[in-house]
Design a binder for these strands. Structure first.
Length: 302
RNA sequence: GGCGGGUUGCCCGAGCGGCCAAUGGGAGGGGACUGUAAAUCCCCCGGCUCUGCCUUCGAAGGUUCAAAUCCUUCACCCGCCA
């Protein structure tokens, strides 16, 4: 059974390609977008409507309330279970999304050590009270390799490293493995690219459309459901901006502009992330996407 | 018409005779990345034949060994008085 990944920056047209591809190769789709996991976050995440999904079953889509926080570890096992299930039913799998770490967590041999809210909370408090420098010093002592790889300013990562060391008694692996640890050696990854100017245009247009379609109302509904108390969902592009607009911090016009700006920056980070995975086969903007992907898949299976 | 304040690099905004190509922030570009990843963090950011040189701080003159910083005139913007 095939495992195909469609990745790339936001607004490059991944979702549509995934559906048409799934149709062609008798596949089901697994969402690899950290924000499309949430129910009710539809307009702002550019989630495909039921009609647009064209009857293709989508997994890991609409599976969490906005008050629940997704984590990579949870996603990893849920996604792998979904793949096993799909393959067991004799279908192929298409994984689509822009969350690089999530895709990598599925494909590669990443083991996420446990987490402990209490330990984390204590470390957080320590960082606030005494500063990260203090914590970083400890990290240097306990795990020089991790300290060398993590920037002292990156509080979140310093804390996580210390948390892992404390819970497991083992050093923290601070670097992701590169391409040599695949759990699904037959998986094929395809990346969609677009030149910056074109992408910026598409992002701007998409954000305008989100507003027209009622993003503000969507966020209002989620605020009522408690999204502001969540730690993950409320940071989503567009949602964070509308939330701060509703709290009176910024105007609606600014919220919209900021959403476009933040989305542009996000797209850049995505490109950086995906660009380091040599396994990805990039589909250039001038190539017919579906045809090119099908061709590559077929030539591989021969 | 009179008096006062302002004009700084793509934008906002410090600087107020030498240590200034000029603090900060934003935008833009590059990069990192193992339980918040649409997150978090780092680097670059006038030009060049790049341990130095050249062109920048509204414009044009001037003072000085030396000016974004002082003086003069002009242009535009802002406030108060008419």
């Amino acid at each position: 059974m095939k495992t195909i990944v469609i990745c790339g920056a936001t607004a490059t047209g991944k979702s549509d390609l995934a559906v048409s591809l799934a149709n062609e190769i008798d596949a089901e789709i697994i969402n690899a977008d950290s924000m499309q996991l949430y129910r009710g976050m539809d307009i702002g995440t550019a989630k495909l409507t039921a009609a647009e999904r064209g009857g293709i079953p989508h997994h890991l889509l609409d599976v969490l309330d906005v008050t629940e926080d997704a984590t990579v570890a949870w996603y990893q096992s849920a996604a792998r279970d979904a793949i096993s299930d799909i393959h067991a039913r004799g279908k192929n799998t298409v994984i689509v999304g822009g969350t690089g770490l999530y895709i990598k967590a599925i494909l590669d041999d990443l083991n996420f050590p446990d987490t402990d809210p209490l330990v984390r909370e204590r470390l957080n408090k320590e960082a606030e009270d005494f500063g990260v420098a203090k914590l970083f010093e400890r990290l240097q002592l306990l795990d020089p390799a991790a300290a060398a790889a993590i920037n002292i300013q990156n509080v979140r990562r310093v804390i996580r490293a210390l948390e892992v060391i404390e819970i497991t008694g083992q050093p923290f692996t601070a670097n992701l493995p590169r391409e040599d640890s695949s759990k699904y050696p037959d998986a094929m990854q395809f990346g969609l690219v677009m030149d910056r100017e074109k992408l910026t245009e598409r992002i701007d247009a998409r954000v305008d459309l989100m507003w027209e379609r009622g993003l503000v109302a969507e966020v209002d509904a989620l605020i009522a459901e408690g999204i502001t108390k969540a730690t993950t969902a409320r940071r989503a592009l567009g949602y964070a901006q509308v939330i701060s607009m509703r709290s009176g911090e910024i105007s609606e016009e600014l919220a919209k502009e900021e959403t476009k700006r933040a989305t542009r920056q996000y797209a850049r980070r995505q490109e950086t992330w995906f660009s380091r995975d040599a396994r990805i086969q990039w589909i250039s903007p001038i190539q017919p996407r579906l045809e090119t992907v099908l061709e590559k898949i077929n030539s591989r299976s021969k």
